[in-house]
């Protein structure tokens, strides 16, 4: 009943792909044929089997390979994982959250045994069996946030809540869509979102902050965000932009299907019990255009979204150089038929 973990790469030879059942569970982010910013936050509750919402912390077939890619990034650039000194307790909170969610949802793969503060954590896919004392830094090989996020898909931002604002005071960020934790650490909610176009004027961040600062323990929330990535590269960091930026100039009508990916972030928001911090897991899902068009509703809709996207958003998301080529390619899959409402395949 376990997951069949793929051995694949997110760099160099780029062997990443989704198996057919994982294409069907892809969190397609457009509920209609157009896209504009909205405070699209909803309760993070379990969804149907065969969707990424089946479990609140999703583990999928890419888990083992994604964790290998994270280890490569951290060896090259340890600044991708940072925690300001007052955030250690929140790190322990996060460790507890991720261990308990994983052990409950995937008992074949993970187990957690607690005897008082003495915890035993078994992570079978990664071959880890550690016993440690909860709250005692000397009993883990890394700080608690780094330890558990080296074993968890997605980026993690831990936000301290004070003065009616949220402060980006810790994080593990190796699969980001072009923002730098090293630069943004210590900033408040408005400051780290400062470069985002259009949304400030629409009052998006003021309303989002109000919602987020009121999130209660045990009642997490979520939203989807999206961009596009050339080649299935997880590490699209600004730090390495001068290394991967040229990929954006390599898109041709012949290689769109394999090279161009829709990149969806499932962001969830959780209150942590001891520290009263919030954690934002930002989980990244990639799907090739060849895979996306196997669902005809998604092909039609994504063609329309991309074609009609406001130019500021296209520029902010870095799509400008290859957008016309991708629209042209997708147009072959759009016969103009109406699409049904909602995200799901027909």
């Amino acid at each position: 009943m376990g997951i069949n973990f793929r051995q694949e790469t997110f760099r160099d030879d780029y062997t990443f792909r989704n198996s057919p059942e994982f294409v069907r569970r892809f969190p397609f982010p457009f509920h209609e044929d157009a896209y504009m910013y909205a405070v699209n936050i909803e309760p993070h509750v379990q969804g149907p089997k065969g969707t990424v919402f089946e479990n609140l912390i999703d583990v999928d077939e890419h888990y083992v390979s994604e964790m290998r890619d994270r280890a490569i990034v951290l060896a090259e650039d340890p600044l991708r994982c940072q925690s300001l000194p007052h955030m250690t307790l929140a790190g322990w909170d996060l460790l507890e959250l991720l261990m308990t969610e994983k052990a409950n949802s995937y008992p074949d793969h993970f187990s957690l045994t607690r005897e008082g503060d003495r915890w035993r954590w078994i992570n079978r896919p990664l071959g880890i069996d550690d016993t440690f004392t909860f709250g005692d830094l000397s009993t883990l090989p890394y700080g608690p946030m780094e330890y558990i996020t080296r074993q968890s898909q997605g980026d993690f931002c831990i936000l301290d809540q004070r003065d009616g604002n949220l402060w980006m005071d810790a994080g593990m960020v190796t699969t980001q869509a072009d923002w730098s934790l090293d630069f943004d650490i210590g900033m408040n909610f408005f400051e780290w979102h400062a470069p985002v176009p259009l949304a400030h004027e629409k009052g998006i961040f003021t309303r989002a902050l109000k919602f987020l600062t009121n999130i209660q323990q045990g009642k997490p929330a979520r939203r989807l965000n999206w961009t596009m990535t050339i080649n299935p590269r997880l590490d699209t960091s600004p730090e390495n932009y001068h290394k991967w930026g040229t990929d954006r100039a390599t898109v041709t009508p012949e290689n769109v299907g394999d090279k161009v990916h829709l990149r969806v972030e499932l962001q969830s928001f959780w209150r942590l019990p001891r520290s009263n911090a919030l954690v934002f897991p930002i989980r990244c899902y990639l799907i090739k255009m060849d895979e996306l068009v196997t669902v005809s509703k998604w092909a039609r809709r994504f063609h329309r979204v991309l074609r009609d996207l406001p130019i500021e958003l296209a520029e902010y998301k870095g799509l400008t150089r290859y957008r016309p080529t991708v629209i042209e390619w997708l147009s072959k899959y759009d016969d103009g038929a109406p699409t049904s409402p909602g995200f799901a395949p027909d």
């Binding site: 630069f183 210590g186 400062a194 001068h242 991967w244 930026g245 100039a249």
Partner: peptide, 27 residues
């Protein structure tokens, strides 16, 4: 030695503006 676009994005912690390679997509 990279050629940097100097952004308005500013970090108090670093006391610096952010510079990002301006010609990364086409050197």
């Amino acid at each position: 030695g990279l050629l940097l676009l100097v952004r308005d994005h500013y970090s108090r912690r670093l006391a610096a503006f952010q510079g990002v390679c301006i010609n990364a997509e086409d050197p």
